[in-house]
Design a protein around this nucleic acid. Structure first.
Lengths: 155, 155
DNA sequence: ATAAATGCAAAGGGTTTGCAAAGGC
DNA sequence: GCCTTTGCAAACCCTTTGCATTTAT
């Protein structure tokens, strides 16, 4: 039942395969696995820099590869020309609510959706594998404030 | 009521804004607006070549931009590292069934989904803007045949 | 000590852009 | 004829790779 923080799970995964746990990797994992937003490589590098850490591009990408392989991180492509990364959630099918202003992501599940996708797939002769639903909108914070940047900074 | 072919709508759109209708543009529009598959730029160029037309890369991309602006074409990003393009359907069909073997795409609508997304957004304090649902699976053809390539060739 | 990670810079792949030549309207 | 498009090649952006140096275990 040990609901240990993600970073501890990363530490464990790394030591299991005897991989060196460098300060860079730790910092990258810390940021990536705890962000409420889906960060891009560039945003990540900026965050590291503002924390006083100058990490090389190659290291960042290579560490991301490690995190992806560990299964603790998942990549997403919103068609922006680059990838974004998010911590892996426990939920099997995670539907998402994405704020188009600040980029915050919230997740939810809906049993009806599960049934609906199976029904639709079947009626089209498809063997259903998985699905993905994203609802785009404006989150409460961003709807409230006059200056959206303030909401973003708050996150 | 004139349910004119897409290509005629493209012609009309072009002449409305007095844009030259070159053979290249016509060929590209013809292929892109009538394909049952979501073509990539590269696939498009191959198709043009096999039709005896050697069109420059830049021209292809610039024509795609024109088609996107006309609203007759829509771009999709499946996270493959490049974009794919599909003709714009009339209905606000945001729901898709995508065959992971041959790439075929079928669309559908579901009223319940519309209601569900509004409800979920509201309960999370979000102002709902739009949504996107993709169900991944294997289509009837691809489930049936032993050799998936046969199904792809058939399309 | 030793195998692995780091950083830099150069390479790679899809897409865009600058500019002279060609071509619709 | 005028203005736009074309094609080529160089430029771009994100990401990956090669290699000498540093570092965690």
């Amino acid at each position: 039942m040990a609901d240990q923080p993600v970073i501890e799970r990363f530490r464990a995964w790394m030591s299991e395969r005897q991989l060196p746990l460098t300060p860079q990797r730790l910092a990258i994992a810390e940021l990536l696995l705890n962000s409420p937003r889906h960060l891009s490589a560039e945003e990540l590098i900026e965050s590291l820099a503002s924390n006083g850490l100058k990490v090389g591009t190659a290291t960042v990408y290579r560490t991301i590869d490690v995190l992806l392989e560990s299964g603790l991180l998942v990549e997403r492509d919103r068609g922006e020309g680059f990838r974004r990364f998010e911590p892996q959630r426990e939920l099997p099918h995670h539907e998402q609510l994405l704020c188009t202003v600040c980029g915050r992501v919230e997740e939810f599940r809906d049993a009806a959706l599960e049934r609906m996708t199976s029904r639709v797939a079947e009626s089209h002769g498809f063997v259903r594998e998985r699905h993905r639903l994203v609802i785009y909108g404006t989150c409460a914070d961003c709807s409230r404030v006059a200056d959206p940047a303030a909401a973003e900074a708050r996150s």
